[in-house]
Each structure stands twice: as C-alpha cells, then as structure tokens.
Write a protein that binds this DNA or RNA. Structure first.
Length: 796
DNA sequence: CTCAAGTCTCCGAAC
DNA sequence: GAGACTTGAG
C-alpha cells in the first residue's frame, strides 16, 4: 500500500522532508513536541485536562503522515472505550481505513487477539474461553469444594485475589507455595495449583493469563517475539501509571527491538494499586530508558482556576507524588459547593434538585452532568431520585446486564458450543433448565471423568457406562450431550446470530422462563432476548462475525453498553470509571469518612494516598462547576450507619468553597423540610471550617453516643412523611442501645485474640448480646466470634 | 430430585 | 436490601 493512500483527501498530504501537517498547528509547544518526537523512548507526563488524548491522537496521525503503516502502530489504552474513541478521532484526521487498522485496545483485548493466533504454542486451541472474575470465582468454589476446604473459613474471593496478585507478580503456583507462610497463604497456594490445572484442562484463560501467556509466548518462542517486535514498530501506552508488573514486562519485550516506545501518564492519577498497578513503572521510566525524552504537559485546558486550586490543595497532602505545576488560562469560575445532607436519600434528592436548578438557570442539558461516587451501591438512591424527577440518566459500566444469571447462563451455553472442554460453563447450565441432573448425579459423572481422565463433556456422552447414577440420569445426560454436540457442529454452518437464536431456543431456557409466568421470569426472558439481539447487532456491524469473537468481546468489554455521548443523559459512574472523562458539571457524592476515603484507608497511609488520588481524579473531571455532597447517615449492608464528613473536605482551601445545607434549598425544592437547623449548615455564608467543626462535635466516628443521635431534630417531623424515613428513626433508636464500649470495634480494624492471634474484622452482625464479629485471622482464617465471650483487643 | 423458604454475603474499584 | 447459596420437606 502506498503511503498516499493512507491519507484521506481533504486532509493535508504529507509533504516530504519536514513539512508539517496542518493538524499540528493547534498544539502548544509541549504538546507539539509530544506528538512529533516519534523515534526512541518518550515519557509524556500529562496532568489532568492537559490535552493528553488529543496529543496521543495527533501523534498517531503524525506517524501515519510520516508514512508509518497503521498496522505497525500499537496503542494500548486502559479501556476499550478509550481505544474506540481514539480510533474514531484518528479516522477523522487520517481517514477511515487508517483509523481502524491501527492496533488499539486494552492490554487484554490486544493480547487476546494475538494469543488466538499463537494459542498452539501454549498448548491451547484457538477457541479458548476467557473467564471473567465471576467465572474464576466459581471455578475456585468448585475447587475448594472438591478439596474439602471450608468456604466459611477462607472466602473464595480472598483466594481469588491472592491468586490474581501472584499472577500479577508473575509467580507460579510453585513459587507462591514456597513463599507462603501463613495458613491462608498455604491454602491459596494449593488452590492456585489446582486452579491452573483446571484452566488448562478447560482450554480457558482468566484475565491475568492474557498478560502472562503473552509474556510466556514472547519469552519462549523467539520467532514469535521477533514477529511482534517487527509488527509493532511504534508502541504507545496510555495511563502508564496504572500498568502492573506483567504489563510492564510485556511492553519491555515488545519494545526492546526498535525502542519506539511512548508512555503517557500522571502519577497523581494512579488509582489501581489494588489490582497490581505499580507506580514505579512510570517513576522509573527514565532509568529503564536513560535516553528517553521527557515531555511535561502542564497547561490545563479543562477546568476553572477554582477547580484546579481545589485539586491542587488536595493532592499536595500526598507525600509520594511527583511535583507538578498545573496551571490554566481559564476563568476563575464559581466556587465549589459543598452540600451537606441528613441522609443518603436526601443527598440524592438534593443532587437532583440542584441539577434541575442548574439546567433551568444555566441552560445546561442532562448530558452536561456527571454524578460520581466511590462504590457502585451508591447509585441506587440517586437513580431512584432521578427516575422520580424524570431526568434521563445512564449508568456507566456498573454491574448490570452481563452479570445477570440468565445472561451468564445463555453465554455459558454459547461458550460450550465453541469450546466443549469448558467444564465450568458446562456445570453452570447442565441443570438449567432442570434436566433431573442434580448434585449427586453430577458428582458421580465428575468422578467418572476424573478416573478415566477424560473431559467432563465426554463423560456426559458416555453416561450409560456410569453405573453409579440412575437410569433416568444416564438418559438425561446423553440427551444433554447430544443437544450440545448437535449445535457444536451447526455452529460453523450458519451465521452466529441465527445460530444463537436456534440454539438457545433448543436448550429450553427461554421456554422455562416463559412458563414460569412471574414478573421476574419475564424480565429474565426479556434479558435473554436482548442478548440475542445484541449478537445480531454485532453480526451486522462486523465484517466476519464469529461467535468466538463475540464472546471474547463480551468477556473483555464489561461496559459494552457504555455511555452513549450522543444521547442527552446524566451520567452516573464510579470514580474509577470517571477517569479520562470530563463534564461541565460534576457531583461527587458520599464524601464521608469511612466511605470516601473508605474505612480501610483510615489507618493505612498508602491506601489513603490512593483514595486521595481518586478524589483528585474526581475533582479534575469538572470543567465549570463542582459539587461535593455527603450524608450524615446512610444505609450500608441494609443497615443504617452514621459518619462524619470526609477529611478530604478539610483539605480544600475554604476560600474556594461555599457551603449549602440541604435545607438551604430554594423554596421550590420538593423535599424541603423547614425547621431543620444543623449547626452551621443553614445557609451558604458560613466558612466551611466553622461548619465542619460543628459537625465533628455531633458525629463521632463510628460511635453511637446517645446524645449525638439526631432523633430530637425537628427535621424528622417531615411535612411530607415518607415511610422509609420513619423506619430510619426506629432503626436508629435501636442502634443507640448498643453498648458504647464496642464503639471502636468496627469493620476494617485489626484485633487481637488470645488464641487466634491477630486478624482483621470483616463484618459485624447482630445486636446486644447476640452481636458477633467475623474476623479474618492470619493463623486460622475466618472465624465468627460472639463479642460477649471473645475478648477482642482492638490494635489499630 | 425439586422447589420454597431460610441464611449468608455483599458494598472496594474493573480488564 | 438484593442476590446467591443452603437446607429440608415433599
């Protein structure tokens, strides 16, 4: 292909020798340097809102204009959404074809694509299945059950995160076992070993394997390494501060030939330490590549001066942060508004009220707003309020659709047709709908498979030979295997969309839900239909659609129905999901001690610094106006809990803050409760410090001191009584009877027990004499302890 | 073996 | 409070 064809007419043709393309003209000097320094290693330190995405896009467009082939460019982004947007922007500058031929995607999706073609080197087949976190979890549950390890004592989740941590450190089961000291670690090691064995037997990889196997194949197959080093002549890595050890190694391998590696990141926005991100990757880049060019993007084009001042004030409380001076030519802008509310429900109402007021007075549209929170669970209240107020909204990512049972079941059927050795998928749906194959029969069949060393699916085919199960189960097993086999053969004969419809119809899953005739079952039936139409959509927009590819996309693109920015919706999302986005108006909700920062961070400085970076990310999403909200009491785990406002609020200069109590709402506010006067909360003119000090007096962290309970406040005598509100009161009075001496014992604290030694409190249940704590001990795993008997000493 | 009712975990973020 | 998992009667 000639290099001229790569550039669409209408964009400037590359002129030979140094003449520069038109599109670079709008860049500032630092951006220009970042976009055009294409040879050798480059580190771009890009502050929030400094035009990073633009620079990356232009850099790729520039590469293309210099005659680089699109398929020689690898751009690794943190989300698939970011990759898709980048491709789109490149397409606009350099032409449709070029834009789409660039290798752009997440580490996981790009590596999955590579691994499909190199699977044989690893002992896998092309159609390997990708297990998401939930699949991995149920595999671990099965393993624990078969190994006779109590799931009460060791949660499958903790085992899984242990395994994932080991994988991210590139530790084999053997290495992990060698370094294991405590009992939980030893158990994890044993399970890890079996887990790896079963993944292989199932022809399946988990998320971590996509990175590890990539490294494996590059390290062990020199010709494969060479091939991809040649292919990926220019490598760009976005969000480099959030890469983990395995990603780091993979990049090193790929880039070690030509060294045209450009990494972009901001240490202040590193928010994925918990999943293995290693901030040293960015801090040490210059050591890894001594001749690296370093470009700093410090001019912010996004936010007002006040918003930047707040962000700066917050982040400077972190010790381990590269010094950076972010500045802007933008206007000073409005002050940041803090909204204090009595409850989570009223917080949600206040957000919606203020949001509507902003739309009315400042002429904003719904799409100009984002509501951001620390935990997914917070979305519910806000959703309810938005729905009641008829404000259109979408939730970015979130748990939702693909995690639903019926959807996962449908996907398991499809996976099984693609990869019949996938025993996890098989076990998931073998009795869904009921086929008279219960626990006992399945255990017997599993045993048979094990003894004869054949895949589970083969055992089902040969069920008539298994004398330990009943005749009825034998027949049922054979019928089931015949159903799957029939469609395994049909799979490549008809288009994926049609196939899926016929197949799922034949499984009886749809009929089962239809016959139940409950509202819930109808919902589930609809969800399966939605999934089937989604496959049809995928098929329609893809050149050579295959079921394998569709399933891979589903596994790797969790937020597939991501925010449609063309639609006029308010966006709801977690702080993590907000990274990389921007909105004119941003609400950050739930700024409470114990929620944001999370309780676990309270006594752990590194955790707290990460929470602070998360807050920094949140603040810098806002262009014009930022609201910070908190609730004095909120439901968590179905129980009411109290907390004081987040310590992060104190870190912001009072000069850029203004304060609005929930009852300083305009008269039009529907939930207005006159009479409420929280000290210092009333109107906007108090400086925050004053208000804050008052609040601290009233709300002791984690305690339930009787006179701090706000039961006597007139606010509870609502003129518009709502049922849940009164429930709040009852519950809360109940709570105030809890003996004060257990106040310091709460979820997250470390405790010491005479016999079991040190551990961490994971949950507290029950009341009064029945109150008990679930403690994870280093020595013996998890134990339920009655507090009135177990003398637990709180040690921090 | 199956279904309904009871129990337990979850709410720490996501490829 | 929801959803997944467990348990016990038919």
């Amino acid at each position: 292909m000639s290099k001229l064809q790569l550039v669409k007419s209408g964009t400037p043709q590359p002129r030979p020798n140094g003449a520069e393309p038109e599109f670079l003209k709008g860049l500032n000097p630092a951006q220009y340097k970042a976009a055009t320094t294409i040879a050798g290693p480059v580190l771009i330190v890009a502050g929030a809102g400094s035009g990073k995405t633009r620079v990356l896009t232009y850099r790729i467009a520039y590469l293309l204009s210099q005659g680089v082939s699109p398929h020689n460019i690898l751009a690794l982004t943190f989300t698939n959404k970011a990759a898709a947007e980048m491709k789109e922007r490149i397409a606009k500058i350099a032409g449709e074809g070029a834009g789409h031929r660039v290798w752009a995607g997440t580490f996981h999706s790009v590596f999955a694509r590579v691994l499909r073609s190199e699977a044989e080197h690893l002992g896998y087949t092309k159609s390997f299945t990708i297990y998401d976190a939930d699949d991995a979890l149920s595999l671990i549950r099965n393993i624990m059950a078969s190994m006779g390890i109590s799931q009460q004592q060791f949660t499958p989740q903790s085992i899984r995160s242990g395994i994932s941590w080991a994988k991210n450190q590139m530790m084999s089961p053997h290495e992990y076992a060698l370094s294991a000291n405590t009992l939980p670690e030893k158990q994890t090691g044993a399970i890890y070993h079996e887990y790896e064995k079963r993944l292989r037997a199932n022809n399946a990889m988990d998320f971590d394997d996509l990175l590890l196997n990539m490294i494996r194949v590059l390290k062990n197959q020199p010709e494969v390494l060479k091939k991809y080093q040649e292919l990926f002549k220019y490598i760009l890595v976005d969000e480099y501060q959030d890469t983990n050890r395995a990603q780091y190694v993979a990049i090193q391998l790929l880039a070690s030939g030509h060294k045209n590696l450009c990494v972009v990141g901001d240490d202040a926005q590193s928010i994925y330490r918990w999943r293995g991100a290693d901030i040293r990757n960015i801090l040490d880049f210059q050591r890894d590549y001594p001749n690296a060019e370093v470009v700093r993007l410090e001019q912010n084009y996004r936010s007002t001066k006040n918003i930047l001042a707040a962000a700066d004030a917050v982040i400077k409380n972190n010790q381990g942060q590269i010094k950076k001076t972010l500045w802007t030519e933008n206007a000073e802008g409005d002050k940041i508004t803090v909204l204090g509310c009595p409850s989570d429900r009223e917080e949600a109402e206040a957000i919606v009220t203020v949001l509507k007021r902003q739309m009315r007075e400042k002429d904003f549209d719904p799409k100009d707003f984002a509501i951001i929170y620390r935990t997914n669970a917070q979305s519910q209240q806000i959703e309810d309020s938005l729905r009641r107020a008829n404000v259109p909204y979408t939730i970015v990512s979130g748990v939702s659709f693909y995690k639903r049972k019926e959807v996962k079941d449908t996907l398991a059927y499809l996976r099984l047709a693609v990869n019949p050795t996938d025993s996890e998928s098989l076990l998931r749906i073998v009795n869904e709908p009921a086929r008279a194959l219960g626990k006992t029969s399945i255990q017997a069949i599993q045993l048979y498979a094990q003894e004869n060393n054949i895949p589970l699916f083969e055992a089902f085919k040969n069920a008539t030979k298994i004398s330990t199960i009943q005749k009825r189960a034998q027949i049922s097993s054979v019928q089931f295997s015949q159903l799957i086999e029939k469609f395994t053969l049909l799979k490549d004969e008809i288009p994926p969309a049609e196939f899926a419809v016929q197949y799922i119809e034949a499984t009886g899953l749809l009929r089962m839900y239809k016959e139940q005739e409950t509202e819930d079952a109808l919902d589930r039936w609809n969800n399966i239909q939605r999934l089937l139409s989604h496959i049809a959509e995928y098929s329609a927009r893809t050149e050579n659609p295959t079921l394998e590819e569709y399933l891979e996309q589903i596994a790797l693109i969790s937020d597939l129905d991501i925010t449609d920015t063309t639609k006029d919706h308010v966006s709801l999302m977690t702080l993590h999901a907000a990274k990389g986005l921007e909105f004119p108006v941003v609400f950050i909700a739930g700024l409470e001690q114990g929620l944001f920062p999370l309780g676990k961070a309270e006594n752990d400085n590194e955790e707290k610094e990460e929470e602070r970076r998360l807050f920094y990310v949140g603040i810098t999403r806002a262009r014009e106006k930022l609201f910070l909200t908190y609730a004095e009491r909120r439901y968590r785990f179905g129980e009411l809990s109290y907390s004081r406002p987040s310590e992060f609020l104190e870190e912001i200069d009072s000069t850029v803050l203004e304060y609005e109590g929930a009852f300083g709402m305009p008269a039009a506010a529907p939930q207005r409760r006159t009479g409420f006067q929280s000290p210092g909360f009333a109107t906007g003119n108090n400086t925050f410090k004053n208000a804050n000090n008052e609040v601290f007096k009233n709300f002791q962290s984690g305690g339930f001191k009787s006179n701090s309970a706000p039961a006597s406040r007139p606010a509870f005598k609502s003129s518009q009584p709502r049922q849940p509100f009164y429930n709040d009161i009852q519950k809360q009075e109940y709570h105030s009877q809890i003996p004060v001496n257990t106040g310091a014992l709460k979820v997250g604290v470390r405790v010491k027990h005479q016999m079991f030694g040190e551990g961490r409190v994971e949950a507290i249940n029950g009341e009064g004499t029945q109150k008990r704590a679930l403690v994870a001990f280093q020595s013996v795993g998890r134990k339920h302890l009655m507090l009135q008997y177990a003398k637990l000493e709180v040690i921090g």
